[in-house]
């Protein structure tokens, strides 16, 4: 039995899409969490952190309901595209974004918050707008956190199972990811193939994280970013 490369490439595609979107989406959320003084901020922080503790099936279930034809979002999508979001790659991306959100946002927010506030104040007194301060001062000094958050959301999406199964089902080439493939093989008592695929995923995730952390180790040392 050979490795299901289709599932592997699909998973890779999903992880890249999700971590890229989270990099863009996570920045403003993390900025807000790091610098807002709103008294109820902790509630938002708790919501963002929920996917860490929630069973993936619970999250997947609600995402499935939200994407289905009975919800406003689902109906809107059907009116727009003619088909439902559930059991599609797009649906999978939405579910995965929610599932991996804290893995991106928390490292981002932590690194933003650790930037010396005096640098931010200095930037403002020099006439820089908050947006300019973010791109010229906060982001360059948070590179390590940005890399960590993106890497974690990538790796987390690579290995997700429950949300994918609930939202995407098991459609080869559309929603069947590596982890679901492994589950299938075990169900079919094909332990050899399951082992091969599992090893591949293990080695790949390890390699990605090792590369990222080795780059990051250099970024932690304060050095000029050119």
């Amino acid at each position: 039995m050979a490795i299901d490369w289709q599932a592997f490439w699909l998973t890779l595609q999903l992880a890249i899409t999700v971590s890229a979107i989270l990099l863009v989406l996570g920045l403003p959320i993390a900025w807000w969490i790091a610098f807002s003084r709103w008294r109820w901020k902790f509630l938002i922080e708790a919501v963002v952190a929920l996917p860490i503790v929630l069973p993936p099936t619970v999250l997947g279930f609600y995402v499935l309901v939200a994407l289905g034809p009975r919800s406003p979002l689902g109906r809107w999508w059907i009116a727009l595209t003619g088909h439902t979001l559930a059991f599609t790659f797009s649906g999978l991306v939405i579910g995965s974004i929610l599932y991996s959100l804290p893995f991106a946002v928390q490292p981002f927010a932590a690194s933003f918050a650790s930037v010396d506030h005096k640098l931010i104040a200095a930037s403002a007194t020099l006439g820089a707008s908050p947006l300019r301060t973010f791109f010229r001062v906060v982001a360059p000094l948070s590179v390590a956190g940005l890399i960590t958050g993106t890497a974690l959301s990538f790796a987390h999406t690579m290995g997700e199972f429950g949300v994918v199964l609930m939202v995407g089902g098991n459609i080869p080439g559309v929603t069947r990811t590596v982890s679901i493939d492994i589950f299938d093989r075990v169900q079919a008592s094909d332990y050899v193939a399951a082992n091969q695929t599992a090893l591949l995923l293990l080695a790949f995730c390890f390699a990605v994280l090792a590369v990222v952390y080795s780059v990051n180790r250099k970024a932690w040392i304060v050095r000029p970013i050119k």
Binding site: D116, A121, S123, T125, V137, P140, R223, I225
Partner: peptide, 13 residues
């Protein structure tokens, strides 16, 4: 208004 802090706050990067 120019402001020089005690910590100077030069941008390290």
């Amino acid at each position: 208004v120019g402001y020089v802090f005690q910590s100077l706050a030069l941008f390290p990067h």
